[in-house]
Nucleic acid binder design. Sequence first.
DNA 1: CCGACGTGATTGTCCGGACAATGTGACCTC
DNA 2: GAGGTCACATTGTCCGGACAATCACGTCGG
Lengths: 257, 257
Amino acid sequence: MGKRETDSKGAESPVRFSVDRSSPVPLYFQLSQQLETAIETGKLAPGSLLGNEIELAGRLGLSRPTVRQAIQSLVDKGLLVRRRGIGTQVVHSQVKRPLELSSLYDDLEAAGQKPATRVLLNTTTEATAEIAAALGIAEGAEVALVERLRFTHGEPVAHLRNHLPAGLIDLSTERLEETGLYRLMRAAGITLHSARQAVGARAATVEEGERLGEPEGAPLLTMQRTTFDDTGRAVEFGSHVYRASRYAFEFQLLVRP
Amino acid sequence: MGKRETDSKGAESPVRFSVDRSSPVPLYFQLSQQLETAIETGKLAPGSLLGNEIELAGRLGLSRPTVRQAIQSLVDKGLLVRRRGIGTQVVHSQVKRPLELSSLYDDLEAAGQKPATRVLLNTTTEATAEIAAALGIAEGAEVALVERLRFTHGEPVAHLRNHLPAGLIDLSTERLEETGLYRLMRAAGITLHSARQAVGARAATVEEGERLGEPEGAPLLTMQRTTFDDTGRAVEFGSHVYRASRYAFEFQLLVRP
DNA sequence: CCGACGTGATTGTCCGGACAATGTGACCTC
DNA sequence: GAGGTCACATTGTCCGGACAATCACGTCGG
């Protein structure tokens, strides 16, 4: 298919933006949200120019740095591309989410599935050497241990095993069956910052097969993840197993030059 | 007057930074690189404060916006955390790479392995419906097709199959055996922008097992990836298979609030 | 003794301007 | 007509300043 599209550059600012100076929401954020909405709804066509920053600033009654800040945030999101001497263009690829640190629960819910959780285990134990190393605590220290089965449409999808430092949050089995672990942590005031992940595959053991409804030797997706909050403290270590026949990781990622 | 004696912040600047105004390298970038180096080498200890922006600007002979720009770039990388009223802290978790869009070749090379490539196929073919949809071209259109085996230490690690729009770059078999595909594309002036990936697992077929030295039914990691350049054009569709016993995806990701 | 309050420190937001670097397109020369 | 040259448009970088928002901590009052 031809890449060339009708370069109708005549369409000058079909979209009207405005900011509310009495709002506590930062001006650049108001603008970036309006821009993002216009892009997502197609009001700003892919490939179209955005109009130069100075004129845009003048039209909105903002300064150029403020407009630049708004634009930059969308460039960081991958929605816009700046070209010196040309202007700022709307990227016309299907950018969705640049791989958020989301729980499986959120993933499934976003995919329109209705996730359910069965808590198999909710207790405390002593950290093994592996767990202690991942969480940065002493071997033998007390840690919370949660094992869950995650279902969609009544079918098991994954077996989730999580270790958390003792006393970090209150893990009620009821709430664990209602929502995802990350939501509970965020609700407890923990600000997640980064995670280190490893994704691999292996054959199912007999026990794993029984739990997940797969035969022995069936391929399973594995993920191990250590999550850190913004102080650098490890707040969670997860060791998860997914049915490869039912689940795959899908994500979008951006290039940061 | 009741001057404050608790001047604890004064002892917080053991590192000296400097900028070269005659260099064509932007000042904020010079500073951010020096900061990054200081963090990586441990000269700036994890958890330590950075000294407030105004003082830092004055010490370097820069303006505060410039210093802020340098700091912000490292905050975006996950190396620093800003706290209003407190200061800017060095994160003390082991941040490595926030999941770049890298080729397997670069991954292996960075891991200290010595990757080798054998080109199995380097030709053109007609796009199937799946390929056409992934690349956004017409079904039956001509596409380049490359199949490679990737080795480390003489052992096969992955089987890579790539489809590219016809005529995008010149795919010489020799260069494909020397380096990775992404490097060739970048060298051809293509600026990679984003990619959509799916990672899953499945059991090896007989043929796959023979190619990779695994028995039939062995678990394999699979990845499908469509890569886009900054105009939104799809430049590559890859369908890859990795030996799960020899390879796993490892990466770090950041939370973008 | 303990909580409310204020104060200082620091980052967050915003402004207006200046010049540099870069890519496009028209113009000019050969 | 082909190719190089130059003006123009646009983003990139940088400055100096101003005020607001937020957090830690010491002080004061109950």
